[in-house]
Design a protein around this nucleic acid. Structure first.
Lengths: 185, 185
DNA sequence: CCATCGAGTGATTGATCAGTCACTCACCAT
DNA sequence: ATGGTGAGTGACTGATCAATCACTCGATGG
């Protein structure tokens, strides 16, 4: 994360604000159906200036994604710090709880879903892989869990995305209950 | 209006062909970045005629999704039929294998990924829930597995989507191996 | 031979959007 | 004051796309 402080030029501060706006707007509409003008409006600047701060739409989306995964790793780290024990299972469990808290507002979650869908753009695919690599590697090394436990951790994270995207936890139907069981919100 | 049991009128046959084309094209580009003209070109008809066969872009996408989930359930059914045993674990395992075969060409897989991302359109969200309900309920009742096993089955299906979307099984890096381990292609 | 009907299209419209460019304005050092 | 610099914008362009509509064509049947 770019450090925010007095040393930042105003354009760097703007860039950070635009990334915040981009996370919110891209999370709403996804990459292809979110116009730059929506991001600009949320950041209270003109669409033209967004193109002065970022070379193009893709790089803005990638910047939003990078920040997203940064926040995810940070949350996992906080979760892990909550348990003094060194039991990998417990650490992964707390990481899961911390992740659930982080994505409670859905923005970071939906951004990941949309990014996966837009992964035919190479720069976006690269950013997703980069972020997922950091998350996976951090979860593995920080928890000390075996590979298959880490894999399970990520798999249930993906299930969590599905449940949240479709609001399954607020739906009637046994099948919805099967999928949402134990997923924290 | 002429829906004869086995004999399709030419416009109904066209509709089917357009759905096939739609699956392929929407799988490539997703909902928002795939123009109707691409589907029309693949089906060798004019874009205008697509709108005679379907009332709008959304309903074409939904038709493609419906067919997709139909094929998925069919594949699961075939997989389950491969084991004479009544062991839920084995049945789920074979279902997983059959699913992996079905989505080997990626079209049905990517369509589901894109659908999840486009779920802010209510008709699309409904179609995904409808399809997922059928898949989940079929896997549960046909295998006789416990709810948490079914949940695990779906979760690893989602992980499989992620791995395939990002080509993780062809990437170097320990983290990619952790996520792709045991996922069949 | 003529009338009808369904299949299928070309041309167009109206809207949206990424990206560009020439420009203004405020501030600051000389 | 003056000239330079960086922040920020309005107005525009070129392209794309969903959707519509008036039309053609060929088969069918009376």
């Amino acid at each position: 994360m770019t450090k925010r402080g007095a040393t930042l030029s105003t354009s760097d501060a703007r860039r950070d604000a635009v990334v915040d706006a981009a996370i919110a707007e891209f999370a709403r509409g996804g990459y292809h159906s979110t116009p730059i003008s929506a991001v600009a409006a949320r950041a209270d600047i003109s669409p033209a200036y967004v193109f002065k701060l970022f070379p193009g739409k893709v790089s803005l989306f990638v910047a939003a994604l990078d920040r997203c995964y940064e926040l995810v790793v940070h949350a996992l780290s906080n979760g892990a710090a909550r348990v003094e024990d060194a039991d990998p299972g417990k650490i992964l469990y707390e990481m899961g709880g911390a992740y659930a808290e982080l994505i409670a507002d859905r923005n970071l979650l939906m951004l990941q879903v949309h990014a996966q869908s837009a992964a035919d753009t190479p720069e976006i695919a690269d950013a997703v892989r980069r972020g997922l690599a950091k998350v996976t590697e951090f979860a593995r090394s920080r928890s000390g869990a075996a590979d298959d436990e880490v894999q399970r951790f990520i798999a249930y994270g993906q299930l969590c995305h599905l449940v949240a995207t479709l609001d399954l936890d607020e739906r009637a139907g046994a099948w919805a209950a099967v999928l949402s069981a134990g997923i924290r919100h």
